[in-house]
Each structure stands twice: as structure tokens, then as C-alpha cells.
């Protein structure tokens, strides 16, 4: 299996030269990173070429790399165990004001925020491959659609559009799919708060269901025993 994938890598290196920026083989999985402009070319090649024949698209998803490597906790494992928690460096998912104010996009290099990741499967050759492309514009991510190459991409691209706001050019029917009718925002983006923006309840006065801003009380996600901003239980008892 692993030798087959190495053969594939070598084959793609010669036949797709210049069409991808990197090909990485890790954990027995081959990942090609492709610039948006040659996205369709590479997909077409992999689908139709005799030697590859990736006739099935297993999965297509978006990834938001804005907070990649920026941990809330500094938790690198070492021989002495885990280090302790540190103050949140990125957006606290429960702090709505902070989430709105934080001007994160400027911190990410242009064209390095949104990626579309594709997993292909070749049934004839029993091989998988992963393709990734980064959208050039962080504010308005666009990628050409692969629906015409693999029809199953239709809903996957709708999902990526819904959850990440990635636009797919030439998609036949780019609508929201998972979120509510009339939903605002793209929930899987890293700057979207975990608890959401609005909540729904029945208003007895208006006699209908209404939306209102979330009223959930901010809850820290870090366990109290390892939080440094809290006075210890012993000192609390002393004060009482």
C-alpha cells in the first residue's frame, strides 16, 4: 500500500509538474497543495488519467486556518507531563464582545486563511489522495467548483459555503444547507462564537417565535483547579 502511494507521488511529480506547490507523504496519506488557478486542471487530471482514476470524491470540506497553532493553552507534552494553562491568546469562544472586536484577519497572511480540502478515492487502484487549496482572498474566498467532475461535490460545497462562507464559482445551486433558514454568519469560522449569536424563544406577547441575541452567561472553559485568575478555595473560605 505504502509503496503504491509512493509510486503515485512520483507519477504525479512528473505529470503534474508546476501545477502544485507541495506534495507531502505523511502517515501513509498523500497531500497535494494546489494553487487555486490550477485547481480544476489537477482535479480533471486525477479523475480521468489512466494511472490515477480517482472516480469517487469521498469528502470535501473547508478549513479555517486563522487560529492554527495559536493555542489557548500552552499544553506541550514533555517528560514531566503537561505544562500549566496560560491566559487565552486567541479569541475566547464565550466572550462575545472580544470575539467581535478582535480584528484577527490582519494577523493572517493573505491567502492563508481558508482552505478547501478534498479527499479522493480510487476504487480501481485502492488509493486515496488529499488535495488542498488556499483561497487567495481572506475576505472573499473563492474556489472553482468541482461539481462537474464529481457530482457528489454538490452538497459538500454547499456545506463549505454554509459553514465557512467559501464561494464556489460555477456551482449550480449554492445555497445554505445545514443552518437555519435566514441564518446570518458562517458558524465554523474560528471567529464565530461557540454559543452562536442569536437564540430563539417563543414570545407570549407577540404570540410567535422570535430571535434575540444570546443571553447565555459567560462560562470559562478552563477547569478551576488549574486557573490562575481565581482565588483558591481555601482563601475564599477564609474571606467568608
Amino acid at each position: 500500500m505504502s509503496s503504491k502511494i509512493e509510486e503515485l507521488q512520483a507519477y504525479l511529480n512528473t505529470h503534474l509538474e508546476g501545477k502544485f506547490t507541495s506534495s507531502v507523504l505523511a502517515l501513509g496519506e498523500l497531500t497535494l497543495e494546489i494553487p487555486v488557478r490550477s485547481w480544476l486542471d489537477v482535479c480533471n487530471f486525477l479523475r480521468h488519467d489512466e494511472q490515477t482514476q480517482f472516480e469517487q470524491l469521498s469528502d470535501l470540506c473547508g478549513v479555517d486556518y486563522i487560529a492554527y497553532g495559536k493555542a489557548e493553552w500552552d499544553t506541550h507534552a514533555s517528560s514531566t507531563g503537561f505544562s500549566r494553562a496560560v491566559q487565552a491568546a486567541s479569541v475566547d469562544p464565550f466572550d462575545f464582545d472580544q470575539a467581535k472586536l478582535k480584528d484577527e484577519p490582519s494577523e493572517v497572511e493573505a491567502g492563508k486563511r481558508f482552505a478547501v480540502v478534498l479527499h479522493l478515492l480510487s476504487i480501481k487502484r485502492n488509493l486515496r489522495i488529499r488535495l488542498r487549496t488556499f483561497c487567495e482572498d481572506n475576505a472573499y474566498p473563492v474556489v472553482p467548483s468541482v461539481v462537474r467532475i464529481w457530482n457528489s461535490a454538490n452538497w459538500y460545497e454547499r456545506e463549505a459555503f454554509d459553514l465557512f462562507g467559501i464561494m464556489f464559482n460555477y456551482h449550480p445551486d449554492l445555497r445554505r444547507i445545514l443552518t437555519d433558514y435566514g441564518f446570518i454568519g458562517h458558524p465554523l469560522r474560528k471567529d464565530f462564537p461557540l454559543a452562536g449569536q442569536v437564540e430563539m424563544r417563543y414570545d407570549p406577547l407577540q404570540k410567535r417565535v422570535i430571535y434575540q441575541p444570546v443571553s447565555i452567561v459567560t462560562q470559562p472553559t478552563v477547569p478551576r483547579v488549574i486557573r490562575q485568575d481565581q482565588p483558591s478555595i481555601a482563601s475564599q473560605e477564609r474571606d467568608n
Binding site: L27, E29, G69, W73, A77, F82, H119, R128, R130, I226
Partner: peptide, 11 residues
């Protein structure tokens, strides 16, 4: 705290 996974991706 759980455990940390090495940076990377897997399918």
C-alpha cells in the same frame, strides 16, 4: 487537560 496530538492531519 487530556493529551496533545502532534501537529498534522489524518483521514
Amino acid at each position: 487537560e487530556g493529551y496533545c496530538l502532534p501537529a498534522g492531519e489524518a483521514y
